[in-house]
Computed example of a mutant assay.
Amino acid sequence: MRASERIINEVAQGFRAFEEAVTWFSSLELGEQRAVLQEVVRYSMQAHATAQDGRDGLLRSGVKTTMTPAVLIVRERILEQMGRIINLPPSEYLNAFRVLLSVFVVADTRRREAECRGACGHAWHNLH
Rank of each mutant, 00 (worst) to 15 (best):
E10D: 06
E5C: 13
A107V: 07
Y43R: 11
A47E: 05
G118N: 00
Q38V: 08
F97W: 07
V41R: 05
Q38S: 07
I78P: 01
G62V: 05
L28H: 01
A70L: 10
E113P: 01
N95I: 11
A49R: 08
S4H: 15
R16H: 09
C120A: 07
R110N: 06
T23H: 09
T65Q: 02
H122Y: 08
R75W: 09
R16I: 12
S27F: 12
L94I: 11
W124T: 02
E113G: 05
A96H: 01
M67P: 04
G54M: 06
R34P: 00
L127Q: 01
S102E: 00
L88C: 02
D56E: 11
V11S: 03
T109K: 11
M45Y: 14
G118P: 01
L30S: 02
E29A: 15
M45E: 04
T65V: 09
E32H: 02
T23L: 14
H122L: 13
G83D: 06
S4F: 15
W24I: 03
E80P: 05
N95H: 13
A49T: 09
A114E: 05
I85A: 07
A123F: 14
E10S: 06
N9W: 13
F104I: 08
I7C: 03
Y93P: 01
N9Q: 07
G118C: 06
V41I: 12
F15L: 11
T65R: 08
E20D: 08
N126A: 10
N95Y: 10
D108I: 14
E32L: 12
R34H: 10
K64Y: 13
R84K: 09
S27N: 08
R55K: 12
E113A: 13
R34D: 03
R110F: 14
A35D: 07
H48M: 10
P89I: 10
L59C: 06
G62L: 07
